[in-house]
Every structure is written in C-alpha cells, then in structure tokens.
Nucleic acid binder design. Structure first.
Length: 1042
RNA sequence: GCGAGGGUGGCGGAAUUGGCAGACGCGCCAGACUUAGGAUCUGGUCCUGAAAGGAUGGGGGUUCGAGUCCCCCCCCUCGCACCA
C-alpha cells in the first residue's frame, strides 16, 4: 500500500487526536475567513441561489449554554455546510439578545453595571458556541445592547409611532397622511374619537351640536331638581371622576368606561378617553364647569336611579354625530392623532411588581401571581403605558399563516392566541329604559333561551343599575373581586360566585324582563364585559343557574338520546318563536339580519389578542426615542437624534417598594442630566421618556440586521434585504417551541409594519420554521425524594446507587435544572470526546423535533464511529489503514446508497438516520477490508457537515490542500443504487413462510412461479386450495389459501 | 375541561403509499488478538419453544396483509384555561 508522504507520516502517529484537530481547524477557518459570506454588490460576492438559515437568538445568561442549545445550532450548521457544498450562498449568522431583566437583576444584586455582566456573559457564551465549530459568519454578529443596533430598534419604534392603521387600506400608513386626510375633511371624527371616512350627509351633521332630545321616560331635567339635589349630584359626579369610575370623552362628556384597553379597542373605541386625574387643576375646574353646562342645557338628564344619563347615548343606537377635525381645539386634535398611532400611550391594567419596581409581561408572572424573577408579589394596577397596536393586525396575522411552512401545532397556537370568534353584538334595554347593555355572543341563535344577564364586576353599569336593596351586597362583591388578582379569580374555577343587582333588562327577542347579575366568571377584557346567559346551552351559565336557581329554558334540540340540559352543540331551534325548526347555523344567519334590521344588534368578530404592553420601568433596555413637552405633547425624536443612549448611571436600581400603590419611579428618572432636554419641535425645555422597551423589542427584527449589520445609514440595505429574504423570507428558522407564540407573533407584527411602510419586501419574515425538541436528562432521587448529583452516584449493572450510602436511587427523565442536579455541561463533554463527537451524538439521539433524554453513556457509540473512520484512513498504532489502491465494487455500491440516503435525510432534517447510514457504510468497508482514495474522499465529504473538524483533517490526509467547505457535494448514480436481484418474503395467508430471490426484472407470473417452486412453500401448500395470489413488485408475495 | 402530539426490546430509537417489525447505536453474551483489557476486530442478542407459536399501551374492527387506517378505553408530554 502506498500513501502520500503526509498520510504515511500520520499513519505512524497515535490515534484520533480530536483536541488538536479541532483547535487546528477552528483556527484555520477563522484565519482564512472560510465562512465569510459577502453581500450582493460586494467584491467577493458570486451570483447564485441563496439560503438563509437562522437560529433563534440566544440570551447570554450567566449560566452559559446547556446541552439543549447546540442541538438546534448543530442542525442548522449541518444544513448550512450542506447547502454551501450544493452551491448556495449561505447566510448563517449568530448574535445575542442581551437586554433584559436577568442581567439587570444580577447586576443590581452584585453591584456591577449590567453592561459589564452582559459583556462577560457574551464572551463566555461565544467561547462555548465557537467550541462546536459552527460555520457562522461571525462578521455579521449583532448584539441588541450595542448602540449601533438599538439605534435601529428605536428607529423602528419611531416608524410605528409615526404611523396609523388605515382600515380602508388594511395597512399601516404614515401618520402625516392621516393628518392630511383629517384636515381635508376626507376623514371625520366619530363620537369615540375614531377617524372614519366621510360619507354622504356627514357634512351637514358634522360640526353641529346635538339638539337636546326628548326626555327619556322617567327621567328628569337637572333644573327640575332642588338645589341640594343638584349639588349632591354634581359632587357625586366629581367623586366618580376622581375615582375613575367615570372618564371624560374628548369633547368633555362624562362617561363610564369599560375597565381596560381591550374593551376599548374591541368595541371600536380607540382609547379616546381622558382620565380626570391626569388633568391639571384648571383643566379639572373647566371640565366640571362643562359638565354643569351640559346638565343645565339638558344634554345630561337625571334617571330614576338618581344617576345622570347622556341623552346622546340613550337607546343604544350607534352614535352618529361626526365632527370635523379642523373644528377641534389643538389639544384635542393632538389627542386624536396620538390615539391613532401604532405606538400609543394608554392607561391599562398591568402586572405591577412593586418589589422589582416594574410592570411585567404576563409570561414574566408565575401561576401563583408572583414574579418569575425573585418570586415577588405582582398586582393588577392601572398605569399609563406605551402600547403597540398589534390588534390592528389580528386578521392579517391569522390569514398569513397560510403563507408559511411552519409546524401545524405552532400555527394552531398562534391561531388560538389571536382567538378570533364570530358572533353578534346585541343590545339589551334596561327595564327602566335608562340605558342599554351590549353583549357579545357567538350563539345569537340561543337568544330566546337567555334567562338572565351577567356583568363583569368592573362593568361601568354595575354601579348605576344596582338597586338600593342590593347595593350593600354588590359593593362587597365587586370590592372583593377587584382585590383578587386574575390568578386568584381563575384559581378556584369550580365554584361560581355572583350577586343580583336588583335590576332587570328586556330580552329583545321576546320582550321578557330578565334579572341582571354581577359575577366574576364574566371577564372585563373580552367582548363587552357583559353576557346574556343561556343556561340551557352554555356550561358556565348552566352551573351558575343551577347554583342560584335561575330559570333554564331549552332552545336547542340535540340529537336523539342526548340531554338538552347543558347541551352546547349545534341542533334544531325550539321555543324560539318564528325561528323554530331552524338549524343552528341558519338560525344564526337569519337572526343576525333580524337584529340588524331592528337596530339592536349586528354581526361582530372578536379577538382574544390584546395590544402589546411595551414599556418597562427598568434600566437595561432600549430607551424610547420620545420627548414629553408641555407645549407640544408627546414628540418623537427626529432620525438624526438617534441613538438615544442609555445614560451612564452609578445607581440603576429601580425604586423598590412593598406598597402596591406606590407610584412607579423608573431608574432613568435619576439621570437628571439626561432626562432634561429640549423639545425638538419648539426648542423649549422638555423631558425624556423614562420607560425602556421590553426584552422582546430587539429580537423582533434581528434577522434583518444580520443581512447588513454594519450599515450606518439604514437598518438594512434594500438590495441585501431583497436578495436574502427572497420571496418567502428566511429559508429555515430553527428554535425551541417555547417561542411559538410571543416572539414569533411579535416579529411577524413588526415585519408587517415594515412591509406596509415599504421597508421590507416580504409579508412574512420566516418562510420555514422548525422546532427542535427539548433535551432532558435523567434525574436521580433517594427515598426521601432528595435529588442526587451524578458525581455522588455509582452506576452499575441494574441501576443507580448512592456512592456513600449504597441506597438504590429512583430514576426519572426531567428538564435540566440546577435544582434537579441533572444539568449536563457541554464543556465537559467536549473536553472528553471532542466537538465532532458531541455534534454527532446530539444528532444521533433521535429525531430533531422529538424531546429526548441525554445519556452520556451512549456517546461512546458515535465516538467509536469517528475512531473507526479515522483508523480506516489513517490507521493507528494497532491497526493499519484500510486505504488501498483497488476500489472494491461492493464498497462503491454502498457508497452510492449512502450518498443518496444522506442527501435525502439532510434535506428532510432526519440527521439521526443519515448518521446511521454512515455507520452502516463504515461497517461495510471494514467487512470488505478496503476502500480506495476516491471512495474515501467522497465519504469524507458526506461526513463533513456533521463532523467538520475530523472531515477537514482527513480531507488533508487524503492529499487535498483546501478546505472541503466549498467542495461539490458528491453525486450518486441511480443505476449503482438499484439492485439486480431482490429477496422477497413469501407469505401464506399473511404469515411469513419463506423467502425467494428473483431478478428485479421478473414479472408477476415469474415471481409467483418462483414462490410456488420454493420447497418450504410447496410443502406448506400441500392439500390446500389457492384462492388468490398477491404480488407487490419489489416488496412481497402473499398466497391466500383455504 | 378544551386543543395538539405521543406510547415499539434492558435503554435511545428505525420502519415511502398498509407489505420481511426492531435499521443504527448503547448495554449484554461469545470468540479472536493480547502481559493485560473498561482498547480493537469478528460474530450473536424481541419473548417462549423441540416444533408450532406470540409480540409495536389495552380492547374491538376493516384488509390477502395493520406499528401504520377506523371505533372505544388507559397512560404520558406540551399548549390554553370561566374567551361568552
């Protein structure tokens, strides 16, 4: 056997020295910039198809990587390396999502600046990532905490601040265009403060003040009251304004307002409300004067309950009064515009954690209603916060799921999260005629079965309609509900609670009075915060009615044999007047029209999705590019003022408190030099926004910055964006399913905003998504249930035993966590076996999308495989290489089969079976005892994406001088793969009896003849009658006998 | 409770459209080479058995033929959780 000089020299050396090989090739790749991928237009760029393969952005935690992270990274790296060999330009970047609460909390606790901690963590995680030999283009690395990165995060925020959602165009548009349309009169302002297209006849109405209409039945005019009652009423109104039971509309009318943002946005009111307490003292005085005037001129009248009633909103008819924008005061104009922005401020109920001094996202709050970090109590509280109008995109976020190739469960989770439901809104008059209750229902066909109504405890009508006899009970119930967190309210889901208000409403389909209750099983945030209860056909209403002895009337006839009580499915209408006999879906169609004709209801679509609470009272996040000016209001900074840098601070600790009512004091408030600035509009003194953005912000668009990370003029150059994003966005996005909803939904939302505004060219960011499964590991417990670390365990024959006590331990598969003492550190594994073995093991464990247990004991299998590969080509002290001059035809055939299988499996992300095929090939070579150089080279190329270091080394041993990274992927010859003869199983009545060898070309008759001639078959058929002969070509023969 | 996914040897897992169940690896057994073997190479390894049989969570069905399709039940994982 003859080998090249280098190879024979190596053949003398000891075995597979992975540590040296891996160090050598990682240095080679870095020095030669092997994986630098130029952009179109750059000098070294060569034309070709593109492939953008993306990993989910890691958060550089202090704990570093665990063995779960590199699973996805290895998969994408195999794909990236494979696609390069297939001639693609491959974009394969990595970066860090480095803002966020953990780094800041650590920094606070240890007295180090979060930037320092973050830097250290990034250095560590990057060291770890580089150990695996991934082929990232490190020149594209980004970090969200880098001012040159967050400058563009701020820029995108400004894009949202400076645009609004145009329902007509069904797209975001620049806010300037809204202002233009408002000034020109193409858009008018409706009563809720929404900009709506002007229609025929609006012009006459617009700008007119409403004539005080006739007194509603039972009501009195203000001037009919005596002075004492007048005074009492006025002070009562003021009290309710101050306690936020009442708000002011933009034109100064006092209105009750549903408890939060959602009700407002869902019922079509875009938050056009002013909280009385936010007005200055003079403004408050003026507001009270205005209300007094409205009372005096009869716009507000007095209902029998003693409450005031706005005659304009009585009767439930949709308000039609339109106003011209140009008629409004400047302040009101500004408010209307601000309330249309995609990024807007609103007072919303939030998770407030006084100990951490910040609001928290729902996912940062545990099921027990405590903070994820630090386990501090969290309270529900209304605060004025930045919001992003993701709800405007509900329908598109839903529809465009059809454009992407994502796992069906992820799409389903997104659909559920958006939570679209179709139904109708129906108005129920109060029995005293003083107002209406609007409800949302998906089953308007069950209206005849509505025997009572329920208001959420926060519903604004509760206070107004409660009778004096019931007041004490209702006040107590509402108070108790308010003090409970959402968690507590839903925790005891078994028992329904509620109280009767004493008031009645009229069921509009049959004019029957039905009682109105208050109960916390009705949520403020969904629909209108009020329901019609149909106990016969709704499980919750059924439970409630049973508990409180409310009437239950059947209106749907279920299929035969099914009890109608509590039947929630579709059926045939009964007890429903003229609608009797209709099937559910037809009934819904007809009654919706019926309701619309009478002006008491209309078809309506509801979403569970809420607008995105976008501010945090923390230091370690992106500052908002926003200035607050007394004169000009909330002002977005001009682009040239970006980035707004985080101020250097000695004390970035947020104000911590045990008092849930204490005002939020964001840490940025302590940076006096920084927060006082000049208004970019008027040049007067102004203050900066003190909140920072939440952690999700930076990760919403990082995949775009990778495309052009150094660009100083733009978040991303259009040419680069168009080339890399192509038609469908990123070609492959791999990450854990824990980001199924939030990250992926938020990114899609930002992307769509950028798309609407013309900054990106695809409607969706991630064309294909793949979720890797979770890697868990074995955890061991002793009798007491105490977890025992691997170091204290003696593993022998039949189980795990405690090293010192000798006690047998129980084994279970768990998520890796410190507490369970089952964390496996990749550094240790790599030190012992090398990165190539690690990569191979993670891919060999099972299907990429399955969750599977880590078992260090199993690693030796793949490690042995690499040693066999090494010895096959290089040999070691004990064994000569199998490399020979003569090609073995059997090996050649196996090689073609391997190339075919590996190619198909990589494309399908079935890496475990691709590796199994490589093992089979090596086993075949050892059996044959020889492999020639050409065969060895092709094998090494196939191995390359999986175990790149050893593959590169062997590539060199075989006499090549360049990296194999851009070598052509080997091809297979289909003729070589095809077998000339096949062994077919022969069954009798489906039971395997024998096997026959036939040529592939054999036809059915020949196959049957061969089967019948087989001695075992012939014997088995003796005395039987053949009924049927079944031949599946290439698969099997089955003979059916009697 | 609702929705989704899954249950195959001692273990991780293979198995186009229904077509030889258990590829590949771990572990285990045997042999070879060895001063040695926790190295390496080769062979064996679902269960029971003499043969015949029996096996893919349990039960039923469709089919010449079912891990795969249909119905019922049990268990596990994930998501949502009073969403009207």
């Amino acid at each position: 056997m003859k080998l090249s000089g280098e190879a024979s020299e190596r053949a003398q050396m000891a075995g597979y020295d992975f540590a040296a090989i891996e160090k050598k090739w990682q240095e080679y790749w870095e020095k030669n910039q092997t994986f630098l991928q130029p952009n179109p237009g750059e000098s070294k760029f060569s034309d070709g198809p593109k492939f953008y393969v993306l990993d989910m952005f890691p958060y550089p935690s202090g704990a570093g990587l665990h063995v779960g992270h590199p699973e996805g990274y290895t998969a994408t790296d195999i794909i990236a390396r494979y696609k390069r060999m297939r001639g693609f330009n491959v974009l394969h970047p990595m970066g860090y999502d480095a803002f966020g609460l953990p780094a800041e909390q650590y920094a606070v606790e240890h007295g180090v600046h979060p930037a320092v901690t973050t830097q250290k963590n990034i250095a560590n995680i990057e060291r770890q990532i580089k150990m695996f030999g991934f082929s990232y283009d490190w020149s594209r690395r980004v970090s969200t905490t880098d001012p040159e990165y967050y400058r563009w995060t701020q820029w995108i925020f400004l894009q949202m601040f400076n645009s609004w959602y145009d329902g007509q165009a069904d797209a975001a548009r620049p806010i300037d265009e809204l202002i233009e349309d408002l000034h020109s009169g193409d858009l008018l302002i409706d009563q809720a403060g929404n900009a709506v297209p002007a229609k025929e006849g609006d012009d006459e109405r617009a700008g007119q003040s409403d004539e005080p209409s006739e007194l509603p039945p039972g009501c009195a005019r203000f001037d009919q009251l005596d002075q004492a009652d007048q005074k009492k009423l006025l002070s009562d109104i003021v009290r309710r304004l101050e306690s936020r039971q009442l708000y002011l509309t933009l034109d100064g009318r006092p209105v009750p307002r549903p408890g939060d943002d959602v009700a407002a946005s869902i019922t079509g009111m875009q938050g056009g409300y002013i909280s009385f307490s936010e007005l200055s003292q003079t403004e408050q005085k003026q507001a009270i004067e205005d209300i007094k005037a409205m009372l005096e001129d009869g716009q507000l009248v007095i209902a029998p309950t003693g409450q005031f009633v706005d005659v304009r909103s009585t009767g439930g008819a949709a308000p039609t009064a339109m106003r011209k924008f140009s008629d409004l005061a400047e302040k009101e104009q500004r408010q209307i515009i601000d309330n249309h922005r995609l990024a807007y401020m609103a007072e919303v109920p939030v998770n407030w954690c006084p100990k951490l001094g910040t609001v928290l996202a729902n996912e940062e709050v545990t099921n027990e209603g405590r903070s994820d970090r630090g386990d501090h109590p969290v309270f529900r509280r209304a605060l004025n916060q930045w919001m992003l109008r993701i709800t405007a995109y509900s329908e598109r976020l839903l529809d465009d799921l059809s454009l992407v190739d994502w796992p069906e469960p992820i799409k389903l989770m997104q659909r559920n999260w958006i939570g679209r439901s179709e139904g109708a809104e129906v108005d129920f008059r109060l029995a005293d005629g003083s107002d209406v209750i609007r409800v949302f229902t998906t089953r308007p066909d069950t209206l005849f079965g509505a025997t009572y109504m329920v208001l959420a405890p926060e519903h604004p009508l509760v206070d107004r309609i409660t009778t004096s006899e019931q007041r004490r009970e209702v006040v107590a119930y509402v108070g108790a509900a308010r003090n409970k967190s959402d968690m507590e309210r839903t925790a005891d889901t078994k028992e329904k609670t509620g109280v009767f208000t004493g008031a009645y409403a009229i069921n509009p389909v049959n004019e029957k009075p039905i009682p109105i209750w208050v109960a916390d099983y009705v949520l403020t945030g969904y629909g209108t915060g009020a329901i019609m209860a149909v106990p016969a056909h709704d499980t919750r209403d059924f439970e409630f009615a049973n508990k409180f002895n409310l009437p239950i009337i059947q209106v749907v006839k279920p299929p035969d044999g099914v009890d109608w009580r509590g039947f929630v499915g579709d059926g045939i209408a009964v007890n429903s007047g003229q609608f009797d006999g209709l099937a559910t879906d037809e009934f819904i169609r007809q009654i919706t029209v019926w309701l619309e004709e009478r002006g008491i209801g209309q078809g309506q679509v509801n979403y569970k999705l809420r607008d995105w609470l976008f501010s945090r009272q923390r230091y370690w996040g992106e500052p908002f590019p926003i200035i607050h000016c007394d004169k000009c209001g909330t002002v977005g900074l001009p682009e040239k003022a970006l980035p707004v840098l985080l101020p250097e601070m000695a004390d970035f600790t947020p104000a911590s408190s045990d008092d849930p009512g204490a005002p939020p004091r964001p840490p940025l408030g302590k940076a006096a030099d920084w927060l006082n600035t000049k208004c970019p509009c008027c040049g007067g003194p102004a203050k900066r926004e003190l909140n920072t953005m939440p952690q999700w912000a930076g990760s919403c668009w990082y995949y775009l910055r990778y495309l052009d990370p150094e660009n100083e003029k733009c978040f991303c150059d259009a040419t680069a964006e168009e080339y890399w994003m192509g038609k469908d966005g990123a070609d492959l996005y791999v990450g854990g399913a824990e980001h199924a909803v939030l990250h992926l939904l938020y990114s899609r939302f930002w992307h769509k905003v950028l798309f609407d505004l013309g900054h990106v060219s695809t409607p969706e960011p991630f064309g294909k998504l793949f979720n890797q499964g979770m890697i868990r590991s074995f955890a061991y417990r002793d009798k007491r249930g105490v977890y025992i670390g691997y170091g204290d365990i003696d593993f022998r024959d039949d189980g795990a035993y405690h090293k010192t006590t000798g006690e047998k331990l129980s084994e279970s598969v768990e998520k890796m966590s410190k507490g369970l003492k089952n964390v496996v550190n990749p550094d240790d594994i790599i030190a012992q076996y090398g990165a190539d073995t690690f990569r191979l093991y993670e891919m060999f464990m099972g299907p990429l999308d399955a969750s599977k247990p880590w078992n260090t004991r199993d690693i030796s299998g793949v490690h042995r495989f690499l040693q066999r590969v090494w010895r096959m080509i290089v040999g070691d002290e004990d064994q000569k290489p199998l490399l020979s001059q003569a090609a073995d035809p059997a090996v050649e055939k196996e090689l073609h089969k391997l190339i075919k299988k590996a190619s198909e499996d990589i494309e399908a992300m079935k890496f475990n079976t691709a590796i199994a095929a490589m093992m089979e090939f090596i086993n075949a070579v050892y059996r044959a005892g020889a492999i020639d150089r050409g065969q060895a080279e092709r094998f090494v190329l196939v191995l390359g994406p999986f175990a790149p270091h050893v593959a590169e080394e062997l590539w060199h041993v075989l006499g090549n001088t360049d990296s194999l990274a851009y070598e052509d992927w080997p091809r297979f010859n289909p003729a070589m793969v095809a077998e000339s003869a096949v062994e077919l199983p022969v069954q009798i009545n489906g039971k395997l009896r024998s096997r026959i060898n036939v040529p592939v070309s054999a036809d059915q008759e020949e196959i049957v003849k061969a089967a019948l001639d087989d001695p075992k078959i012939a014997a088995a058929l003796e005395g039987k009658q053949i009924v049927k002969k079944i031949v599946v070509p290439g698969k099997m023969v089955n003979i059916v006998v009697k």
